[in-house]
Structure formats: C-alpha cells, structure tokens
Write a protein that binds this DNA or RNA. Structure first.
Lengths: 214, 214, 214, 214
DNA sequence: CATGAATGAGGATTCATTCAT
DNA sequence: GATGAATGAATCCTCATTCAT
C-alpha cells in the first residue's frame, strides 16, 4: 500500500520501520535477545512481513551495518580523496575535518554506532565475516591515504598498515567516547584533540627534545 | 583423583581442562555456537560436571576473560607504576616496554586475545557489562598514568580520559594486528612503531614546522 | 481474455495451466513440498489467482485425481459393461483388453499415475477419504463384474469382494510396473501376462494336476 | 532410570513408549498432523527426550516401518527359503501357509499395517525412498522365489519381476482387506482363497477348457 | 565428586490464504 | 477477473541446566 504526499511517493516503507525498530531493540537488548516478534511488534507489522523484506534476522542487522559504513565512508574518506596535499597545514586541516565528521556521524547515528561497536560480534560467523570486511576495507583505505601522504613527505615512514589499524582502533574508541563516555563534550574540541594526538603524539616538545629521537 | 607436584595441588584440574577446551571452541565457532556439550566432550568429562565448576556457560567465558585481563594488567601497568619518571627518555623507554609486553602477551595468549577482541559482545548483557568494566578500568588506569606524566611536564595537556580511550583502541587493534594481520612481524619493531606513533604522532617534523601548530 | 476455436471456448484456461504445473511439481517434489507459490510461478499467474480457481491446495490435487479416475473408469469398466459374456474366450479377450487399456492409460497419464499411486496419502484426512472412495468404487465395480461372470459360470465362486481388492492391488502394481519399473516393456505382452496370471494363476498345469485340487 | 524385574533389566523403554504412542497417533491423525508434542505427551515424556531417542519425526516413522518389514520378512520368506519344493502340492501348501502368515501378521500388527499401507507417502522424500526400498526388496525376494519354482517346473514361465510386483499388490490389498474391509473373516479362509486365486486364477476350469489357451 | 539421561522453555521461519486495489 | 503484498498460525528442534544415582 502506498500513500501519496505532494506527489512524492510515500511508500509505507515497511523495511524502514523494521530497521528502525530493530536498531533500537538491538541496542537495548542485544542482537540475540531481540526476537523477530519484538521487531515486528514495534514496527507494527505481522511476523511474516518481516521475511518479505529481509532474509532473516542477521540480514537485517547486516543491512543496518552496511548503511552505517556506506554513510561513514562517503562522508569521510570518499569526500577527502588522496588529493594533492601540499603542506602539513593542509594535512592538519583535513585530518581535523575528518575527525570532526567522524564524531558528528557517530553522534548523529548513535544507535547504529552502538550496534557497530558493540553488537556485531553477536552475529553468526557468516555475517560476522561480512562486518569484518568493512573494518578491513577501512584499514585499507587509511593505509592508502597514509602512503600517499608519505610519498608527499608529509607523514613519517611508519608501516602504513600497522598505523592504519591503530587509527581504526582510535576511531572506534573516539566514537565510543564521543557517544557514550562524554556525549556532551563539544565535537570541535574532541576533533582537535584527536588530531593533535594523531599528528604530534603525546610527548611534550620540551621533553621530546631530550628524549624523543629513538 | 589428585596428584601432587612439589607440594602444589595438581588436581585433575577439570576446571582447567574445561577452560582450555572452551577457549579453543569459542575462538573456533564463537561463543553462541559452542555448546556446553561440545566443551565437556572436548574436556573429557560429563555434562553435569561442568556445573560443578562453573555457574553456567557465560561464567566460564567471564573466567577466561578475567584471567586475560588480570595477566595483562599485572604485566603492564602494575609493573610500571606511576613511578617517578624524570625525563622524556624514561617515558619513551617505559612506553616502548609496555607496548612490547602487550604485543607479546597477545601473541602468547592468542586464543584468549581472540576471545576478548571478538567474542565478548556475544555474551548476555550482564556478563557483557562485566567485560566492559575491564575496559573501563583499563582506560582509568591509563588516564591516571597520563595525568601523572602530565604533572611531570612530560606529556601534553590533552584531556586524559579521551586520550586514554584512544589508547585503548590502539591497544586493541595493535593486538589484533600483531596476532591476526601480521603474526610474523617482529614484536620489537611493532612496539617501536607504536611507541613512535603514540609519542610523536604522524606528522613529518619538517612538515610539522610549517603546519603543525593548530 | 478468451479465445475461440471452432466454437469451443478456449479460455486462457488458467485452471488448466495450474493443474499441469501442479501435477508436474507434485510428482517432482511431492504434495507437501510443493508450495502454492511454486505452482502459480510455473503457471505464470499471481498467488491470489489460484484461489479463484481452486478452493485450496488439496482441492487441486483432488481435481487431478478425480480426472484420472473418471478417465480410467470410462475407458475400462464403463466401456465393458457387465455385458453378456457367453464363453470363457469372450471373458479372456475382454480381460486382456481391459488390462491393455489400463496399462496404456497409466503410461499415457504417467504423471497422474504417479500422483495417484504415490502422493495420495500425503493429503489431509478429508481429501484422503475422498481418494479412498475412488478405490472402493473401483473395487465395487470389479466385484459386480465378477459376480456377473460367476453367475454365467465363467469364473470360480471365490468371494467377489476379496478378489476385487486383490485385483485392485494387482492393477496398482501393474501400473507401477508398467510406468516406473519397465517403462519400455510392450504393453501387449504385459497385458497378456497379467491376463494369464489373473485367469489361470501361476501353477504349471502339469504340476496342478497333482497338486491343484484344494 | 531402570527398574528391575526378576533380574531382567526392565528399562523404562522410552523409545518403545514413543513408538507405540506415535504409531497410534499416526494412524489416527496421519503423519503430518501428528505433532511431536502429541507423541511425547502420549508417551509421558518431555519434548526434548524425543530427540534423545530419534533423530526427528520421520526417523521414528522409519523405525516403525523397518520393524514391520523385518518381522514380516522373517516370518514369511525367510522361513520358507527357496527350499526344494518337489511337487505342486508342496508349493500349494507353502503358498497357503505364507498367505496365512501374512494375513495374521497384518491383523496382529494392524496399526503398523495401516501405517505402511496408508501413511508412508506422507514422509519427506528421503524417508519415502527408504520405504520404497522395502517394497523393492520384497518384490526381488518374490521374483527369486518364482524363478526357483519355475526352474523346478512348478510354475508357469511368466516374467518373474512383473508377477512379483503383481503379488506385492495382492499382498498389500489382501492385508488391507483382512484388516480394514473384513476384519472378522477367518484368516484360514482368506488364505485359502488368495492361494487358489494366485495359483489357479479365476477362470472356471470348464470355461477354461473352451477359452483358456491364449 | 562425577555422571548423563531427562527436561522444557524458547523462537525463527514457512507458507496457505486473504483482500484492498 | 487478476494481482501480490500482507498476514499470522503453526511447530520442529536446540541446548542450557538439573538431579537421581
């Protein structure tokens, strides 16, 4: 059944209702404890209807995660291609912008963020592997970005894949922090601190002078 | 039947056999897909025996995780108390030693590492919360360490709790990298790179000169 | 849309398409495993259309079976009424003709034969009873035929209903044999053997001489 | 839990209780309509207990059928091996004894008989094939028996496999008749009539004289 | 302490059928 | 008549846990 609104087709969007309901319930009770019966009840449709829109429960979860990653990638890496960074200033500005986007994205999609960070490993192996692939692709993209910047002489010659994974961990926990630990901390300040840590590290320059070179 | 060895009670150690079997099966098939029946079969005891040693399946998992964290904390933070660091060199050396310990610990206990990193969120909410507390305590300890170092003027005045969480993420993914992605990379080199990244960041000093100050 | 052909209404014959599709699917996968969705997909119509032509899934099956029996009765018993058989020769010829017809009918309608012989008991009780009535009516007709022949002194005075049921069994398995076991055996020879067995039994006349009289 | 009775181990025989309950329910309501919940309720055990004794519902059915055929084979063909029949009299006597056994067996195990004759095709394909194999083996055994008797010159040279299948059909319907149609008819008379029909056929000898030779 | 047969609650999924368009 | 999206009842099987021996 479809409804019209100003000439725009406003489908009932049952799939959308199911996804919203499921996202909420998954974050509240976990993937395993959330029954399909709960999801359809929250979405206001019948049990069978679920299976017209999703193959099964894990599929719905995967659909949610895929959307999350697609959006995140699009708003960060995809929007900041390995473009010609000229100076460290450029890099700094860009990195900070990316951090800002990440933090805002996590806060905007806090429910999905929670799912990605905390529920993904409750999935059956097959879907779990699918999710892992997102992380691996993220790490790959970061590694390529680093390598480009290294060629430009902007960042140090640390092993790109290792650093990429460390950055993945930082991003995960930065989102975690921004969403759960300090949901009221200003995004701009979080982004600034993440950027400073990422680019300059922890060591106090004065201390570094005496102890920094390995 | 009990066996003695140098005065130490070497029980048949059914609990130990159960834990080994469970750890292995959990990493192979996941927490959910591993049945108690599988665990006892692998341990060579009867179903009922399981419940003489563990309250239930999640409890066994939690016991494994607790051991992992206890060992990790003991070998890292506990062994490097907020002692009087005098110089940046001291700090660098200590940080690198800690990274080294972490990487070696993960590789030594690769099965448990896998469990902590990949299975913990398959637990029911109650046990999940227990696991989360380990991470929070880890973040707390790191934050205290940072604050101490900040007071000594050795590290920058970034917000300690945020940075602590970023470090947690880095540690998680560094272990992930050391165990799964590059299991053959020398620990010493991994630790060195992690240290350099943590303390000095990514920015090439020459580039930093022009663009580093935020 | 209807098409005409020589004054005969050639409807799109959706019912026919549904029956063909169903017969095929039932023989391939069994009654239970065949879903209405499969039938309509094969027939190229929508789900709902099914219920404009048949009350439900079992009804369609029953319709197929009814056609099978109607045709079989018409071509055998109905065409060979309890007519005045005069001699054993007449009887023999008629019996052989009936066997021939049965075998050819089974082979011509092999799919339906398969259904009747192998799927009928997968139906719900109500429709099952309906099918059983066909067998009972067949046995009744055979019994009447035998009684007529007995009155004419052409066949032995064995209890007609018992023999009728034995003949039903023979017919079922003769069709089974002709369709599944030896689909290439010439019908005429099968019919001849069935006739000889039915009328004269297995015993070798020479052996019968010594052992035949009960 | 086991109980002792005069030194004999009287197991609770849960499998036996389940089989009895299931056989009864299958004949009453059909295989499909009988739920595992009904079976265990009738057997007085818990749902899960069912699966300690049978892999699933079809398996239980197959176990019942297998027992039926094992018993029937043992009491008929197996007990009357292709022994050296010397005369038609011997053959007649043996055939009659076998018919008697069959009829009594069907009546003794009337519930199982009903299952074999009427429910077997409600099974899923895999188990159905298993049941079919019993019939094929029965036909094979009959064919071998016939061939032996043919070599001894006791029975006519009709194609053994065809006749074997006709006999299978007769046996099925004879049991059907003896159990459902005329449960009170004396076994001995039924067996006599079946024997006479099988060995000598229907044709009245006087009529046969004029019309019997094909 | 150890056993392992018995328990029974729990839930995902299927599919015949309906009905608004 | 035809459509096909929506319905929701129906049920098998799993597996963590118990407890009599």
């Amino acid at each position: 059944m479809r409804q019209s609104y100003r000439g725009v087709q406003m489908a009932d969007d049952i799939a959308g209702k199911l996804k919203s309901a499921a996202a909420w319930l998954f974050t509240q009770h976990g993937f395993t404890a959330t029954r399909v019966a709960d999801i359809v009840a929250n979405a206001g449709v019948a049990q069978g209807t679920f299976y017209l829109h999703f193959e099964n429960k894990p599929s719905l979860f995967v659909a949610l995660i895929d959307e999350f990653f697609a959006g995140l990638i699009e708003e960060t890496i995809a929007r900041h291609p390995a473009k010609r960074l000229q100076t460290g200033e450029h890099l700094s500005a860009e990195v900070e912008e990316i951090w800002m986007t990440i933090i805002r994205y996590g806060r905007k999609h806090d429910i999905l963020t929670r799912l990605v960070l905390r529920e993904a490993y409750a999935l059956p192996p097959e879907q779990r592997a699918h999710i892992n692939r997102h992380f691996e692709q993220g790490a790959d993209a970061l590694a390529r970005y680093l390598e480009d910047a290294q060629q430009l002489g902007l960042v140090k010659n640390l092993p790109a894949r290792l650093i990429a994974w460390l950055l993945v961990g930082m991003i995960e926990r930065a989102m975690h922090y921004a969403v759960f630990v300090a949901p009221n901390a200003p995004s701009v300040s979080l982004a600034g601190h993440c950027t400073e840590f990422e680019l300059l590290g922890l060591l106090e320059p004065s201390a570094a002078r005496t102890g920094g070179e390995s």
